[in-house]
Amino acid sequence: ELSWTAEAEKMLGKVPFFVRKKVRKNTDNYAREIGEPVVTADVFRKAKEHLG
């Protein structure tokens, strides 16, 4: 699991709890794919757009 900024964690907190774990995993995987060592708010937004 990658490191997350406080802002990205806050955004994740707005995701319904029953899918939060999956969203975190998918976002981590997306960040790795694009070469990001940390999940930022920008990476979170891009993952959301990319993953739907």
Rank of each mutant, 00 (worst) to 15 (best):
E33Q: 12
G13D: 13
V15H: 07
R32K: 09
T27N: 02
L2S: 04
K21V: 11
A41E: 07
E9Q: 09
A47Y: 14
R20S: 03
E9P: 00
R45T: 08
A31Q: 00
L2I: 14
L12K: 01
M11K: 04
F44R: 01
G35C: 06
A8E: 00
N26Y: 15
L51P: 06
G52Q: 14
V38Y: 07
K25Q: 14
A41F: 05
V39K: 00
K10A: 14
V19S: 13
L12N: 01
R20W: 03
G35H: 06
R24V: 03
V38H: 06
D42V: 07
T40V: 01
K48R: 15
A31L: 02
D28W: 03
A6C: 08
A6Y: 10
P16A: 06
A6E: 13
P16R: 05
E7G: 06
I34Y: 08
N29H: 10
E49L: 13
A47N: 03
I34H: 15
H50K: 10
K46N: 08
I34S: 07
K21Q: 15
V15M: 12
E49H: 12
R24S: 03
V43T: 05
D42W: 08
V19R: 13
E49Y: 12
T5W: 02
T27W: 04
V39I: 09
E49I: 13
E49G: 09
W4K: 01
A6P: 12
N26T: 11
R20E: 02
V39R: 00
F18R: 13
K14T: 08
K22Y: 14
D28I: 08
N26G: 10
V15G: 02
D42G: 06
R45W: 08
T40M: 01
A41V: 10
H50S: 10
R32G: 04
F17G: 08
D42R: 07
T40W: 01
E33C: 15
K22L: 14
M11N: 03
E9K: 12
V39G: 00
E7T: 06
R32S: 05
L12W: 03
P37N: 13
T5Y: 02
L12Y: 03
Y30F: 11
A31D: 01
L51F: 15
E7V: 05
L2V: 10
N26M: 15
R24D: 00
V43P: 01
D28Q: 07
M11C: 06
A8D: 00
E36W: 06
T5R: 02
K25G: 07
G35R: 06
S3M: 14
P16W: 08
T40G: 03
I34M: 13
K48F: 14
P16L: 05
G13K: 15
E7S: 06
A8L: 00
L2T: 06
W4F: 00
A8W: 01
K10F: 12
E49F: 11
G13Y: 12
T27G: 02
E33T: 10
A8Q: 00
V43H: 02
R45N: 09
V15Y: 14
V39Y: 00
K25E: 14
E49V: 10
F18W: 15
T40I: 01
R24M: 05
A31W: 01
A47D: 01
G52C: 15
A47R: 04
V43C: 03
K22E: 12
L12V: 03
F44V: 04
T40Y: 01
K22S: 11
V19A: 15
E9H: 06
G13M: 15
V23M: 09
I34T: 09
D28R: 03
R45Q: 10
G35N: 08
A6W: 10
V43R: 01
Y30M: 03
L12S: 01
G13T: 10
E36C: 08
V39W: 00
P37K: 12
V39Q: 00
D42T: 08
L12A: 02
R45L: 13
P16E: 04
T40P: 01
R20P: 00
G52D: 13
G13N: 15
D42L: 07
K21S: 14
V23K: 02
A31I: 02
T40A: 02
E49Q: 12
W4R: 00
A41L: 09
E1I: 11
V38M: 10
G35I: 02
M11T: 03
G52Y: 10
N26V: 13
V39A: 01
K10Y: 13
A6H: 09
F17D: 07
F44A: 02
E9S: 07
K22N: 10
A41Y: 05
